[in-house]
Computed example of a mutant assay.
Amino acid sequence: MRIDITGLSVEVAGRRLVHDITLSAASGRLIGLVGPNGSGKSTLLRCVYRALRPTAGTVRLDGRDLHAMTAREGARLLAALPQEAGTDFDFTAAEVVAMGRLPHQRGSGRASAADTGICARALSRVGAAHLADRGFLSLSGGEKQRVLIARALAQEPRVLVLDEPTNHLDIAQQLEILALVRGGGGSPTEPAERPTVLTALHDLNLAAVHCDELHVIAGGRIAASGTPYDVLTPELLADVFGVRAHRVRHPESGALQLLFDRLDTPPSPPPS
């Protein structure tokens, strides 16, 4: 499912947080948003998953205005993992994941055997099946994150919006979750097509490896767009992030990777 964000701006308390952003994500692509803290990434994503109504502009899914859809219709198409997500009530992990099936349920809203199976498979796919009967509030930060990702997968969306999905995860879990999302995490059964994914990431190396395209956001505006190799240049990283970057290739995969120094660190002398 294609995402088109057109002329999107957000103003809060007289302050413009996002300025006239336009970007698209083709169906099945993994699109990354990167930028410094406070640059507007989360504000933009909140407009996409309808936690915030933009001051101007539109978000469209396959040409349809997302904000004109009913809540149920939108939730059948799009699932979100906000940066600060959770629950104040001590549901079990299985009950939290089951919330992802609510947009698909009718009448009494009681879970069917099919719903229960979808939720169990979603927990298994994120490596959290053993947490099913644990109280959500008793879980560690990483365990909570995996349960919330399972809830999004159980929703069987065609679009996934993820705000820092690797928060609280160790490095192995980060790689597993991003590979899962990239490989077709939209359905915990056997997904016929990849979901379209729009995600904010802090780790530029993860973004370089896993994203098809990147949009660099600075000061609420898009500073650069393109493939990770085209976007993550030393010049842009110095200008936007204030770091000196060295571009290298992964010795096995050949993927772009970045090494960083402080901008005021003098260059190392060449080896003798």
Score class of each variant (00 low, 15 high):
residue 181 V to L: 08
residue 141 G to D: 08
residue 70 T to C: 01
residue 162 L to H: 01
residue 183 G to V: 12
residue 73 E to D: 10
residue 149 I to T: 07
residue 230 D to E: 14
residue 135 G to P: 03
residue 193 E to D: 12
residue 218 A to Q: 12
residue 228 P to W: 14
residue 271 P to A: 10
residue 59 V to Q: 07
residue 42 S to C: 05
residue 57 G to C: 08
residue 135 G to Q: 07
residue 57 G to I: 06
residue 13 A to N: 12
residue 86 G to S: 12
residue 205 N to C: 13
residue 209 V to K: 08
residue 7 G to Y: 14
residue 178 L to V: 12
residue 100 G to Y: 02
residue 122 A to W: 05
residue 128 A to K: 11
residue 206 L to K: 02
residue 53 R to S: 15
residue 213 E to H: 12
residue 118 I to V: 13
residue 131 L to G: 03
residue 242 G to Y: 02
residue 87 T to W: 09
residue 219 G to Q: 02
residue 31 I to D: 07
residue 181 V to K: 11
residue 158 R to C: 10
residue 57 G to M: 07
residue 240 V to R: 02
residue 21 I to A: 05
residue 139 L to I: 05
residue 170 D to T: 14
residue 190 E to V: 15
residue 267 P to Q: 10
residue 162 L to R: 00
residue 250 H to Y: 07
residue 172 A to G: 05
residue 107 G to P: 01
residue 130 H to L: 08
residue 159 V to T: 03
residue 158 R to H: 13
residue 28 G to R: 04
residue 236 L to V: 15
residue 63 G to M: 10
residue 229 Y to L: 12
residue 119 C to W: 13
residue 35 G to A: 10
residue 127 G to E: 13
residue 169 L to E: 01
residue 9 S to Q: 15
residue 252 E to W: 07
residue 153 L to C: 12
residue 31 I to K: 08
residue 36 P to N: 05
residue 122 A to P: 14
residue 85 A to D: 07
residue 50 R to F: 02
residue 55 T to A: 15
residue 212 D to Q: 10
residue 231 V to Q: 04
residue 200 A to N: 10
residue 79 A to D: 06
residue 142 G to S: 06
residue 195 P to D: 07
residue 25 A to G: 09
residue 176 E to H: 13
residue 19 H to N: 10
residue 259 L to D: 06
residue 263 L to G: 11
residue 72 R to E: 05
residue 193 E to C: 10
residue 58 T to G: 06
residue 268 S to A: 13
residue 230 D to F: 14
residue 165 P to K: 02
residue 28 G to E: 06
residue 186 G to A: 09
residue 251 P to C: 05
residue 40 G to C: 04
residue 201 L to E: 00
residue 186 G to S: 09
residue 28 G to P: 09
residue 81 L to P: 01
residue 222 I to Q: 09
